[in-house]
């Protein structure tokens, strides 16, 4: 579906060096797959997505979408994919149903057919009852669902979702995830950017971790965790300002029970196969953390390992 080789995007800046948002990435996305771009803000995810959506010209390297070249066949590519952009571009003065209807017409779909599809999509995103409501009266979660419904109006082979749940409350996120999961089951290829590791773990079969315009790791969520992290992580908190100074003592306390100890401003992360055993070793050494927590390793830990930073900086 997507084939990128050495893909680059740079932006000209007045009186400055051009800013390189994407600095040469290779990506292959297969049909029916849910593929994720994970990375902090400014990693180059959205720039990559806009190039894949055939709206932003490629600055370097090669890119094929559905076997077509976005530089020459942009209009044709856009007719076969769906885009759910980071910023809603809904017309707030129109009703929910009108937004779907006029959008479907942009694809050249007949009037009767687009009405039928609009009704089906409203049903799918559970907005049928709000069909006559103005968009400005919808909640953030409903607007996102409407944008997803809109991106499906042309029966796309692939849907691009740029930060689909950013800014939504937990309940709205779960509703959205459920809908995306159903889409995936229908065989629609999904390409998702996110800086939430739980989102990536929930939705993506395969993902790349991006940082500063480059891909730093690639694989399934489970394989990335297995490769770059331990099975469990013990989070240990000491008093304010004492985390860093306690790091040495913790390291010698856990010894070979842990693979490594990461120091964050507010806590220490002990990477170990058995988190409980590591916490017990800390206590046995006479250290008195204010709080401890043992959890499963996540993509956040992968990212921290790869870049030395947390995802939401």
């Amino acid at each position: 579906m997507i084939s990128a080789r050495g893909l680059r995007k740079s932006f000209q800046q007045k009186g400055q060096e051009p800013f390189e948002a994407v600095r040469g990435i290779d990506v292959e996305v297969r049909r029916g797959e849910a593929f994720g771009f994970l990375g902090p803000n400014g990693a180059g995810k959205s720039s990559t997505m806009r190039m894949i959506a055939a709206v932003s010209p490629v600055s370097g390297g090669s890119l094929r979408i559905l076997g077509l070249d976005p530089a020459t066949d942009g209009s044709q590519i856009r007719g076969r994919i769906g885009v759910c952009p980071q910023e809603d571009s809904l017309d707030t003065e129109l009703t929910v149903a009108e937004n779907l209807y006029v959008y479907g017409r942009y694809f050249g779909i007949g009037r009767a057919e687009v009405r039928r599809r609009a009704a089906a999509q409203l049903e799918f995103v559970q907005l049928t009852e709000r069909g006559g409501a103005k968009v400005e009266d919808l909640s953030g979660g409903m607007k996102r669902r409407l944008t997803i419904a809109r991106s499906m109006i042309n029966d796309p082979e692939m849907v691009l979702l740029d930060e689909p749940t950013t800014g939504l409350d937990p309940q709205a996120r779960h509703v959205l995830w459920d809908r995306l999961f159903r889409l995936k089951q229908q065989g629609v290829t999904l390409v998702i950017t996110t800086h939430y590791m739980d989102e990536a773990e929930q939705l993506c079969d395969r993902l790349v971790v991006m940082d500063k315009g480059l891909i730093v790791a690639e694989g399934s969520p489970a394989s990335l965790i297995a490769e770059y992290s331990t099975r469990e992580v013990a989070e240990v908190r000491f008093g304010i300002g004492e985390n860093e100074s306690s790091a040495g003592a913790v390291e010698s306390a856990v010894g070979r029970r842990a693979e490594r100890v990461e120091v964050l401003p507010d806590r220490l992360l002990i990477y170990a196969a058995d988190g409980e055993a590591a916490v017990a070793a800390v206590h046995d050494a006479g250290l008195q953390p204010v709080a401890t927590l043992v959890r499963r390793s996540s993509l956040e830990d992968v990212f921290l390992r790869l870049t030395g930073r947390t995802l939401v900086d």
Partner: peptide, 14 residues
């Protein structure tokens, strides 16, 4: 404000 043109630009419209 509404970014309607950006929505249009994501479709086959040029």
């Amino acid at each position: 404000w509404q970014r309607v043109y950006f929505g249009m630009n994501a479709t086959p419209l040029r």
